[in-house]
Amino acid sequence: MRNREELRLVGSGGQGVILASVILAEAAILAGKNAAQSQSYGPEARGGACMAQAVISNGELGFPKVRIPSFLMALTDQSLEKYGKNLPEDCVILVDSSLEIPEWLAGRKYYQAPILQAAIDQVGKAQTANIVAVAVINKLLDIVPQDVLKEAVSARIPKGTEAANFKALEVGFNLL
């Protein structure tokens, strides 16, 4: 992992990007790093563009919100449109394979992964897309060892959903 990561995860309300950011921040804390997590969303219960963020640092944390994203993941076209602007050159970008690639993105390096589809086809539960995403992100950025990520997932998912979510992690690790 780079010394400081400022992660922005965006999608539609209900897709679980907030929980994904919480799990990544928690995993970082478990691994002895510093981390903060926050989110921005509207008054809608479902739908709408939702933005979650996590700041992870090997040293002092400092300002707890994302200022200059070092990573962006988008799960919907609408959220990519809203939160994908003004990304620095070295920002790692990950988009779900279902997204249309906008003109501004076509000219630069980015990663594509079928996160939403893999949750349906390979895990068998669309709701586990956020856990698939967590595994993909951890693989891309090398934030924590895989077992620590699994521990953080365990701590934050409802009891009884372990099997599906651990399967989602496995699917995510092998998606890129």
Partner: peptide, 9 residues
């Protein structure tokens, strides 16, 4: 809201 909804170590 900034502090209430912020998670930190």
């Amino acid at each position: 809201e900034m502090v209430g909804h912020l998670r930190e170590g």
